[in-house]
Amino acid sequence: MDKRKIEESIFKILMRVATLSIVISLAVILISIIYKAIPVMNWGMISQTPQGGFYLGENGGVLNAILGSLYLATGATILALMLSFPIVFYINIYAKKGSWFVHTVRLCFDILWGIPSIVYGAFGFSIMILLGMRTSLFAGIIVIALVILPIIVRALDEVVRMIPQGLLDASYSLGATKTQTSVKIVTRQALPGLITAILIAFGRGIGDAAAVLFTTGYTDNVPTSLFDSAATLPLAIFFQLGSPVEAVQNRAFASALILTIIILSISILARYFSGKYNKFKV
């Protein structure tokens, strides 16, 4: 066999090993969490808030954190969506195609996407001090909305960019304004991408910890108003793992399993929707 064939087959093996090891690391992450969590998992973890003695290993669960995370991610996703529609419409429908302005805006969102969430958290915190605000669900929603805004904008932009110009022209030629075209035509065309973008952003919102550390605080109660502090699942996991009591540490694994299941269901849903609605596109 000639030398270059040998080189090729060696590299082919290496490539297979690399690909396989990535799949294996995903499997190992999921399995190690399931393995640690199953023995300590019980219904009370999901259905109860922390009871007295929770942090010494007694009864209670992380309902406060589950609800806190869901409220936070829902609020942030809605807020980010409301901001992202005008932006995506503007750079795709209103602004001149290929102008430097559009390029700059896209670059800005790429940069915003890359900013670590701890920086958003620190920035949000300094604004809160400036305004004399306390940690609250409201502050958390705003900061998380900023974190996921670039994700939604980029995802939506990708979809809207692909809409054929002919479709827009057809709408204009019927006398529709750009606004009407945006709302009635573009939105419908972007629907599959939109649902996927929402779900990805929602997942990111639930999983983010660094930004909420400063802004949302932590409490054992389920928040009843926007201006209460709220617990979040990632922080619950983090704090429980830091506990010296073994029973509490074990709860961190159970909480991690809950978070993982939420995230996995979201990503499966996202995949399902993006497949399902693709056939309605022109």
Partner: peptide, 8 residues
């Protein structure tokens, strides 16, 4: 893998 939260 990309979507897993950092705490996981």
């Amino acid at each position: 893998l990309a979507g897993l939260p950092s705490v996981i």
